[in-house]
Design a protein around this nucleic acid. Structure first.
Lengths: 233, 233
DNA sequence: GAGTGTGAAGCAGTTCACAGCG
DNA sequence: CGCTGTGAACTGCTTCACACTC
């Protein structure tokens, strides 16, 4: 009680406080844009510029960046390199993460080949597949290992993060095993909702869910045509 | 005034009101689960069962389903086939949608091959790629067309929905052209935020954003180890 | 009694508006 | 004067709790 006595030192940043998910996701977008600015040699930028290219409002950008501490200079804006640095650190992109890919099917292989994330510090060190025909083959220089080996492989390879790209029916079981092997971050590609104990972070990428939500929007549009309003070009 | 006199006919559904995005996305999950129930021969189900497998709470399931009208019977639950029907209709899965794939690179091709969404009524009728070497080749029975042909192709094929799987730098331009060709729903795979006029629905699937959000969670975990608390098994 | 339907309270993220600093 | 920093209002989703129906 007795109002915690608003401390006056600058509260350099409040890493201690959790940052909203939505904000973290926008950080990714800000960062990519800022890196472009950096390449273009811009030294500073303003919240309006960041907003314009990321679909946020200027106020939102400022609120978001406040989670990193007060990084801007009034009347001037934000230092591009400084912000890039802080965002990289906040997003954990200053280290390299060891990633296991579970499922070397069509999606799994496409992910494996996708170069963009290697350059962001995500290195696929381990590939697992249940199909005996695939075990022993290689993706680039990574040998595909059987799903019996999963726990051992993940421990040996000190896996930080697992990507699940297996059939929906097998996904929860694989998630459990991956978590059992100590992995604290899981990215799931199957259109099922996973359950995991507290302390494990799950993220979900589902084309199907997104497509169906688009499909819903189309149906709605068809049933309730937009207000005619002023002639949109 | 005088309390609108609670109409007694069942308010079959309120399609007129918009349904929150979050709810629509959960509909996808409910539907998949209900289809499983249907295959298993269950005639009815309860909000608790739906909640358990989709990571929602029972109250949330009920609130969500209310958007479809009052579909449940107190003391009994929901009719599985009835709910499946309404959800399919609401999600627009009772029609078939004509989809254009813009970008036949690694991701584009993986999406093309992904069977699961054809059986949901999404049919890829058109494939576009900027690479002249690819133009004229076929993915299954669909000929790859050049990006100059984009507008013509999309109009000819009466495209409902476009999937963009092109490099980040080209994405906004492709989005503009696709929208210019009258497409009202766009699914974007590049890690950039698109802008589109009102009336066009955008969805965004970005592995990179999700990975970075996981990476952030890992960093946080490292800096603020979880409360020891009771021994989680 | 079991399980829905739903107002009301709670909570989180977003927007506003403006004070304040460079 | 420009642009950030930020309380306060707002909006919208989620949770609660319980009346109500089958």
């Amino acid at each position: 009680m007795a109002t915690v006595r608003r401390v006056s030192f600058p509260l350099v940043n409040n890493f201690t406080n959790r940052i909203p998910d939505a904000t973290v996701r926008r950080f990714s977008l800000y960062l990519r844009l800022l890196e472009e600015f950096e390449r273009a040699g811009k030294a500073t930028t303003a919240s309006t510029a960041l907003a314009e290219h990321t679909g946020a409002t200027a106020a939102q950008v400022r609120k978001d960046l406040q989670h990193l501490g007060s990084m801007g200079k009034r009347g001037l804006g934000y230092s591009v390199p400084e912000l890039v640095g802080v965002l990289r650190r906040t997003l954990g992109l200053d280290t390299s993460w060891r990633v296991a890919l579970v499922g070397a099917g069509r999606i799994g292989r496409a992910l494996f080949e996708y170069g963009l994330f290697r350059q962001r510090g995500f290195v696929i060190t381990t590939v697992i597949d249940a199909d005996p025909a695939k075990v022993g083959r290689k993706l680039r220089d990574v040998r595909i290992r059987s799903s019996e080996e999963l726990e051992r492989a993940l421990l040996e390879d000190r896996t930080d993060l697992a990507i699940l790209a297996v059939p929906a029916a097998a996904t929860q079981e694989m998630a459990d095993r991956v978590v059992g092997a100590g992995v604290k971050a899981v990215l799931n590609y199957a259109p099922v909702q996973l359950r995991a104990p507290a302390g494990v972070t799950l993220r979900h990428v589902s084309m199907l869910v997104e497509l169906e939500s688009l499909s819903h929007a189309l149906v709605r549009l068809r049933r309730h045509p937009p207000a005619p309003s002023s002639g949109a070009s």
